[in-house]
Simulated scan of single mutants.
Amino acid sequence: MSYFLSKAGLDFFIAFGIVLGGSMLAGGGSVFMALPPATVMLDTALRLKIWAIVAAIGGSVDPVRVIESNFTAGQLSPVAQQIAFIIFAFLGAHMATELVKLVCKGAS
């Protein structure tokens, strides 16, 4: 259980950090490009969301292979774990996107 919670927590915070950090850096860079920072931050957060999830769960198709191989073998516990890791990564990316929306409220 300890491994599961630590991996799920890391997936959450990795995805959260990718979206929030990428959006903040894009907003800072937009100042140098004479673009509206809030609009750029919102757009970047939305575009980074799926990539943050992929990066948090491992950045490749390995989690999908784990799901497929264990599901066909009838072992549902590893399948449930991988799906939970994906959900935690999604929650981290989604919360960061909502935070960026909150900070940039009224910018679009």
Rank of each mutant, 00 (worst) to 15 (best):
I50T: 01
A80C: 11
L42S: 05
G74L: 13
L20H: 04
G28Y: 04
G27D: 04
I67D: 01
Y3E: 13
E98G: 10
L35K: 07
L46F: 08
T39K: 15
A26N: 01
I57L: 02
G92W: 00
L5W: 15
D43E: 13
W51L: 07
S77L: 09
A55G: 03
S60Q: 09
G17N: 04
Y3V: 12
V61H: 04
M33D: 11
A8H: 08
D43T: 13
A34L: 12
G17S: 08
V54F: 11
I87W: 05
I57T: 01
E68V: 15
F32M: 13
P78L: 05
Q75I: 11
G58M: 05
G92S: 05
A15E: 03
V19W: 10
A26T: 00
A52M: 03
V40R: 09
G21M: 02
T44G: 11
Q82E: 13
P78N: 06
Q82L: 09
I83N: 02
V103A: 12
E98Q: 15
A55W: 04
G92I: 01
D11E: 13
A34C: 02
G28W: 04
G74C: 06
V40W: 04
G29R: 04
T44W: 03
K101W: 01
G58V: 08
T72F: 07
L42C: 11
I87A: 12
L99S: 03
L10T: 14
F88N: 03
T44K: 08
S23W: 02
N70E: 10
L25A: 15
D43C: 06
E98P: 03
I87R: 05
L76F: 12
A26M: 06
A26P: 01
V64N: 08
F71L: 14
I18N: 04
F13Q: 02
L48C: 03
L91Q: 10
S69T: 15
L46S: 03
A93L: 00
S2T: 15
L10A: 13
D62N: 15
V79K: 13
S23E: 03
R65T: 09
A107P: 07
L102S: 15
S30M: 02
L46D: 07
I83D: 06
V100T: 06
F16E: 05
V100D: 00
R47D: 12
I18A: 07
A93W: 00
F90W: 11
P78E: 09
F85Q: 02
S77C: 06
R65W: 14
S2F: 14
A55L: 09
A96G: 10
A89R: 08
L48K: 00
A26H: 04
G74Q: 09
A107R: 06
A45W: 04
R47M: 11
A89L: 12
H94Q: 05
L42G: 11
L46W: 04
F16A: 01
S77E: 10
L48Q: 00
A8V: 10
W51H: 10
L42Y: 10
F71N: 12
M24C: 07
V31C: 14
A56F: 11
M33A: 13
F32P: 06
F16K: 01
R65L: 14
L25M: 15
V31P: 05
L20C: 06
